[in-house]
Amino acid sequence: MSESKMFWLISAPNREGQDIFEQVNQKTAKESNCSENKKFATPSLRVGTLNSLIALNDDLHRLDTFMENTAKKLAKQLGDLAGTKPKDKSLSIDGSPIQNYLSSFKWDDGKYSLKLTLQEIVDKLTTYTTKIDEELKTRAGEYSSLSSSLAAEERKTSGNLTVRSIQDLIPPEVLIQSEYITTAFVVIPKSQEKDFLQAYETLSEYVVARSAKRLATDPDFFLYSVFLFKKYYDNFKHKVNEKKWVIREFKADNAADLNKSSQETQKLTESKKNYKASFQRWCKISFPEAFTCWIHLKVIRLFVESVLRFGIPFNFQAILMRPHKPDDKNLRDILYNQFKYLGSAHISGKNELEEGEKFFPYVYIPIDCEM
C-alpha cells in the first residue's frame, strides 16, 4: 500500500511539566499506530496587534488555496509534458522528496526575515507565487498555441481524405480551370462508390459524362475528380453536400504550398520540441519555489491561529503528523480526548462543524501533498 501524502499540522499550548509531543506520539503512534509524528519547528514571528492578526487570518485561508493550486498546477503541467504522472523525484525540493522537506522544515530567514511583519512576509510570498502563476499561464498558453499550430499543419498531410491536404494528390491532367470548364474534387465513403458513379452525371446540369476519375484512396474514402461547366459548380457542390459527400476545394496557384507546408511542419515540430524542453526546465525550477511558498504560508497560518486561539505570550508545540489513513476517525478521537480540555464555547461535541468547516480543540492545518 502506498504511503499517505496527507499531512496534519497541529498545535496545542505547552503545559508545565508535560511534553505535548511525547503525549501525542505515545497515543497516536506507539499505542495505536495511527500516524507518524515529528516535532515541527515554528519560528518566532512578530505578533503585531490583535486586529491585524484577525484581518490577516481571513486572508490566509484564501491565499492558502491559491498557493496550493499553483503548486499543483505546476506538478500537473510537468506530468502533462512528460506524458505520465509526475514522479516524486521530479517534484523534489533541493533534490529531496517533498515529504522530506516537510519533515525537516526550516524557516527560510534569508528570504523571509523574522524582522519583517507577518503582513510583509505574506505579501512577499504572495508576490512570488503570483509571478509564478502568471508565468505558468503565459507559458502554457504559448505551448498550447504551438501544439495547435503544429496539429493544424500535420492535418494537411495526414488524416483521411476529408481533412488532409490534397495538393500532392492532383495530377496536372485532371486540373482544368478554363473560362468555361472546371474540376470538382469529391471525397466519398468507399461503401458509396457505386452510388456516386451512378449519380454524379445527373447531380447538376452540364456535368461532363464519364469524366469521373479516382485519384486517391485511404482506408475509408476515395477522392474523385469530375469535369463540369464552371457556371454550375455551386449547384453541383450543393447537390454533393446533400448526399453527405465532401467537396474539396483546390486552387492551382496553391499547388506549391505543399512543400511550404512541409517546411512549416518541420519548423513547428522543432519549435515545439525546444519550447517543451524549456518549459519543463522552468516547471522543475518553479515547482520548489511555489511549494516552499505554500508551506511557509501554512506555517504562518499555524502561528496566527495558535496565537488567536491560545493567546500571548505564545507558547505552543507544533506537530507534523502523517496519518496512515488520510482522515482516520480513530486518530481524530484520540486527539480529541487528548485536547478536549482546550474546548471552548465553540465546541459542544466531537469535531463539530462550524460554518461548514471542521473545528477541533487543537489548531489543525491540513497539507495535501498529493500532486
Rank of each mutant, 00 (worst) to 15 (best):
S225D: 07
G349I: 01
N274W: 00
N235F: 06
G343V: 13
R281S: 13
S344N: 14
V226N: 03
H324C: 03
S261Y: 12
F250Y: 15
K243H: 01
V304C: 04
K329T: 13
V304Q: 04
A318F: 05
K273F: 04
Y233S: 09
I334V: 13
L342R: 02
Q317F: 09
L342M: 08
A256M: 08
E305W: 05
R309P: 14
S348W: 00
K272P: 05
A256K: 11
Y341S: 15
C293W: 01
H324T: 07
L228R: 04
M321H: 03
L302W: 00
R332V: 10
K260Y: 08
F236E: 00
S286E: 14
F303Q: 01
N337L: 10
D253V: 07
T292H: 03
F291V: 07
V226H: 05
R332M: 12
T292A: 06
L297W: 04
F287W: 02
E289H: 09
G343N: 14
E242I: 03
P326F: 01
E352G: 11
K239T: 02
P323W: 06
E354V: 15
F229G: 05
Q317R: 13
F236S: 03
S278A: 12
R281W: 00
Q317N: 12
A290M: 10
K237S: 11
C293T: 01
I300F: 06
Y336G: 11
K298Q: 07
H238S: 07
D327S: 14
S344Y: 02
E249K: 12
D327I: 13
F291E: 02
L297Y: 07
K237A: 10
K272E: 05
N330K: 14
N241V: 00
D234R: 07
L353V: 15
E249H: 12
A345D: 15
F287E: 07
Y341K: 11
A252L: 11
D333M: 12
K340Q: 13
F287A: 07
A318G: 05
L335E: 08
S344G: 15
L335K: 09
G349D: 14
N241D: 14
P323D: 08
N330G: 10
F310I: 07
K350L: 13
K284T: 11
S344M: 02
F314Y: 12
I300W: 09
K284W: 05
R301A: 00
Y341F: 15
G349Y: 11
T269F: 00
Q263T: 12
E249W: 02
C293E: 07
N337T: 10
S348P: 08
F316D: 10
S348C: 00
E354T: 15
A255R: 13
F287C: 04
K350F: 15
P326E: 10
K243T: 01
F229W: 09
V304K: 05
W245T: 01
Y275F: 15
E270D: 09
S271H: 11
Q317W: 03
P288R: 00
S262Q: 12
S278E: 14
H346D: 15
H296P: 07
A345W: 11
N235Q: 13
K231F: 12
E242A: 03
E305N: 13
S225E: 08
R281D: 14
N235G: 06
R301M: 14
Y341P: 10
E305T: 12
K260R: 12
F339V: 08
V246H: 08
T269M: 03
I319E: 07
